[in-house]
């Protein structure tokens, strides 16, 4: 539709206005992290100042950011890989060799996700304590994999379902057996789907705060725990708080920006047809 100039200007202003509004807290966090502590709590807030990285240096010295970040990477990647390892065969058999119970199983798996983790917090906590898994990376990897399994299976299922059956049949006519079918056709065809499923799982793991807060203290603690420690009364150091927050969010934010197209594909859960 041809739009008048005013209409276009209005849409542009509205679109950018809302985008900036939603992004503003993140922008302000980054800005504050570059201020000095006194600058950070100046009223009215400083908009023009000389940026400094001193807060970042302080944070690293005091809390050893890098150790937490490493834990986050390790646990998120580990949890996602483990979840995919379980989910890929499950989703494959559900999509290509469905049984009358497939539909029920899928919905049941999804409904387990609605169960609040608090419901089972106590037994898991005690199990972990008794198994010596408290405050270990391995413990969190297992928890995260299990936590995301239903969603990962569901997403992969919708991707497998999108593969046209005729292509697999053409493969069979060309002489492909189960293994060549999976290796030459299914895997390349669903690789984008597997990738975006992994991406979502990675983001969910990175940002997960319930189990990490309750099951780790220091040794295996990821960035969510690192950040929570800044919410205590000493949190009035706004510049350091912002620096720590920025450092905790930056990797996954940049990662998310770069992979947003992939991610959107995966997030729709077959809802967009």
């Amino acid at each position: 539709m041809e739009r008048s100039l005013t209409q276009r200007a209005l849409i542009t202003a509205l679109g950018w206005g809302i985008a900036l509004l939603l992004f503003f807290p993140i922008f302000w966090m980054v800005l504050t992290s570059l201020k000095t502590e006194t600058g950070a709590i100046a009223t009215p807030p400083q908009l023009i100042f000389r940026p400094s990285l001193s807060s970042y240096i302080d944070v690293q010295e005091r809390a050893d950011y890098l150790r937490f970040a490493l834990n986050s990477v390790l646990i998120s990647v580990g949890g996602s890989v483990l979840a995919l390892a379980f989910a890929i065969p499950a989703a494959y058999s559900m999509a290509f060799h469905p049984s009358p119970r497939t539909r029920g199983t899928l919905l049941w798996m999804l409904s387990t996700k609605m169960l609040p983790p608090v419901g089972v917090l106590v037994p898991i906590y005690l199990l972990f304590r008794n198994a010596g898994l408290l405050d270990t990376q391995f413990g969190l990897i297992v928890i995260y994999a299990l936590m995301n399994l239903p969603i990962v299976v569901w997403m992969l299922f919708t991707f497998y379902k999108e593969v046209p059956n005729e292509i697999l049949e053409a493969g069979r006519m060309d002489g492909a057996r189960t293994w060549s079918e999976v290796w030459f056709l299914l895997l390349p065809l669903t690789l984008p789907g597997v990738a975006s499923t992994g991406l979502l799982s990675l983001i969910l793991c990175w940002n997960e705060a319930f189990w990490s807060l309750n099951l780790t203290s220091s040794g295996a603690a990821p960035l969510t725990t690192f950040i929570a420690s800044f919410s205590s009364p000493e949190g009035l150091f706004f510049a350091k708080l912002s620096a720590a927050s920025t450092a905790a969010v930056a990797p996954i934010l940049v990662f998310g920006w770069l992979s947003q197209r992939q991610l959107v594909r995966g997030l729709t859960f077959g809802a967009v047809k």
């Binding site: 807290p25 966090m29 940002n207 950040i227 800044f230 912002s242 927050s245 934010l253 998310g256 947003q260």
Partner: peptide, 21 residues
């Protein structure tokens, strides 16, 4: 991209930014 960014921010950080800043 700017509008969807909050989705990637971990809940703890989101809470801290809003509470303090």
């Amino acid at each position: 991209v700017l509008a969807i960014s909050p989705f990637f921010v971990m809940p703890t950080v989101a809470a801290l930014i809003w509470k303090n800043l």
